[in-house]
Amino acid sequence: MPAARQRVVQEFSEFFRGFAGRLATWLEYLDVPRAGAKKITQETMTKPYRRWAEIESPEAWTRVVASRAWAARLATVDAIPVEDVEEHAPHHAGGCEMAAPEARLDVCEAIRKLPARQRQVLAWSFEGYTPTEMAEHLRKTPDAVRASLYKGRQKLEDLLRPQDSDQ
């Protein structure tokens, strides 16, 4: 195997091992069901390998590809109303790590109550992206991203605030 090809295989393998689980968790924050998140992750992770030499920011590029795959899936699937079988928290440690599983479950439940755009920018922010970086990858203005991020954080704070039982 040529040295350049060997380098690509090694770099991509390290990327895959370190990022695939985080991508699946990130998709779950976007309200993708666990099975769908795993499938989209598997499908998506083959794409950066093919274009490895062209991609400047593999994590962001892969997140964009995965979120577009989820949007495409939503656009082509007829919703069948069914009852949720299981409430769950993402099982992979990602950028939004919480010390207690109960706290992670609370955050995940609260995030599911937010509008899609707010969930999206919060998921990106949990991974350390700035509003300017998010705007670039999501093809939005930085002001629009900041507004969604602000509203999402405010709503999330309200949802996670302990309720007084005296009232």
Rank of each mutant, 00 (worst) to 15 (best):
M1H: 08
A3W: 15
A4C: 15
Q6G: 12
R7M: 07
V8R: 13
F12M: 05
S13I: 00
E14A: 11
F19C: 02
A20F: 03
G21I: 03
G21K: 05
R22G: 00
R22A: 02
L23P: 00
E28G: 03
E28A: 00
Y29T: 08
Y29N: 06
D31M: 15
V32L: 08
R34H: 09
A35K: 13
T44L: 01
T44P: 07
T46I: 14
P48K: 05
P48S: 09
R50M: 10
R50S: 10
R51H: 14
E54D: 09
E54C: 00
I55V: 08
E59W: 13
A60G: 15
A60I: 07
T62N: 04
R63F: 14
V65E: 12
V65H: 08
A66G: 03
S67L: 03
R68F: 10
A72D: 13
A72N: 14
R73T: 08
A75D: 10
V77L: 15
D78Y: 15
D78R: 14
I80M: 08
I80E: 12
E86G: 08
E86W: 07
E87D: 14
E87V: 09
A89N: 03
A89P: 06
P90N: 04
G95R: 06
E97D: 09
A100V: 13
A100C: 11
P101V: 07
E102R: 09
E102A: 14
A103G: 13
L105E: 06
V107I: 10
C108W: 08
A110F: 01
A110N: 05
I111Y: 01
K113P: 03
L114C: 05
P115T: 08
R117H: 13
Q118I: 03
Q118H: 07
R119F: 12
Q120I: 04
Q120W: 05
L122R: 04
L122K: 02
W124S: 00
W124G: 00
S125R: 13
F126M: 07
G128M: 02
Y129G: 00
Y129R: 06
T130P: 01
P131T: 04
E133I: 04
E133F: 01
E133M: 05
M134S: 02
M134K: 02
A135C: 05
A135H: 02
A135N: 00
E136Q: 11
L138D: 00
T141G: 05
D143F: 09
A144Y: 06
A144D: 07
A147N: 12
A147W: 06
S148G: 05
S148V: 05
R153F: 04
K155T: 11
L160F: 08
L160C: 07
L160D: 13
R161D: 07
D164H: 10
S165I: 11
S165Q: 15
D166Y: 10
Q167N: 15
Q167Y: 15
